[in-house]
C-alpha cells in the first residue's frame, strides 16, 4: 500500500484537489467536531446569513459524539457516527468554506455534487475503532454549544489521525468503486 499522505489543517483548495479516493491520509492539527444537533444550529444560522459561532473556512468537521473520558484521559472513545444524517446540512456548510468531513457511511448525491462544486472531500474513518482513534487525539476544547453535551462543538488537536478518502473533489466515490471491484456474481 502507498505511503499515507500527511495533511495539515487548515486545508486549502490545492490540498483538496490532490486527494483521490482510496488515499490513506494522516491528518495533523486542529479539527472540529459536530453531529446532528450542532449541524442543525449551524445550518439555520448559515441559511439566514448570520455569522457562525466558529470559523469553518478551511476546516474539517469530524462527525463524532465521544464517550465520557475516564479520569486521566484527554477524551473517551471517539469513533465516527453515520454521516448520512448530516447530508441535509453539509452542502451549505461547504458553500461557507468547509473543506472536509470525517465520518462513516455513504453520502447523498447532493453532498457529492457539493464536494465537486466547492472543492471539499469526505474521509472515512473506521467505525467501531473508537478506543484506537481516541489515542490520536491530543487535546479537546469545547468551542460552541456547550449546552448540547456530547453533541457540543469541540476543537480537537489530532496527530496522525488515520482516514481514507471516500469521496474526492473530482466526483470519485470509493463506496461505488470498491463494491464494483470486489463484487462477485
Amino acid at each position: 500500500m502507498a505511503e499515507p499522505i500527511r495533511l495539515k489543517t487548515p486545508v486549502t483548495d490545492e490540498d483538496i484537489i490532490k486527494l483521490k479516493i482510496g488515499d490513506s491520509v494522516l491528518i495533523n492539527g486542529k479539527i472540529l467536531t459536530g453531529r446532528d444537533a450542532a449541524h442543525k444550529r449551524l445550518f439555520e444560522l448559515a441559511k439566514k446569513g448570520e455569522p457562525l459561532p466558529i470559523d469553518i473556512k478551511g476546516q474539517i468537521i469530524y462527525y463524532v459524539g465521544p464517550a465520557p473520558a475516564k479520569p486521566g484521559y484527554v477524551i473517551g472513545p471517539a469513533g465516527p457516527t453515520t454521516s448520512g444524517r448530516m447530508d441535509p446540512y453539509a452542502p451549505l456548510l461547504m458553500e461557507k468554506g468547509l473543506k472536509g468531513m470525517i465520518g462513516k457511511g455513504i453520502r447523498s448525491k447532493d453532498v457529492r455534487d457539493a464536494m465537486q462544486k466547492f472543492k471539499a472531500v469526505y474521509f472515512s474513518i473506521t467505525g467501531g475503532a473508537a478506543a484506537l482513534i481516541s489515542k490520536q487525539i491530543k487535546s479537546v476544547k469545547i468551542v460552541a454549544y456547550e449546552d448540547l453535551g456530547p453533541e457540543a462543538i469541540r476543537e480537537l488537536e489530532v496527530e496522525d489521525f488515520p482516514v481514507i478518502v471516500a469521496n474526492d473533489a473530482h466526483g470519485g466515490d470509493l463506496y461505488e468503486e470498491g463494491i464494483k471491484k470486489y463484487r462477485r456474481a
Binding site: V64, G65, P66, A67, K70, Y73, G76, P77, A78, G79, T81, T126, G127, G128, A129, A130, A131, L132, I133, S134, K135
Partner: peptide, 16 residues
Amino acid sequence: QNAEIAKTENIPICQD
C-alpha cells in the same frame, strides 16, 4: 488493535 486497547484499559470498544 482497538479490541486489545479496550480490553487492556477497560474503555468501550465503540463510543456508541
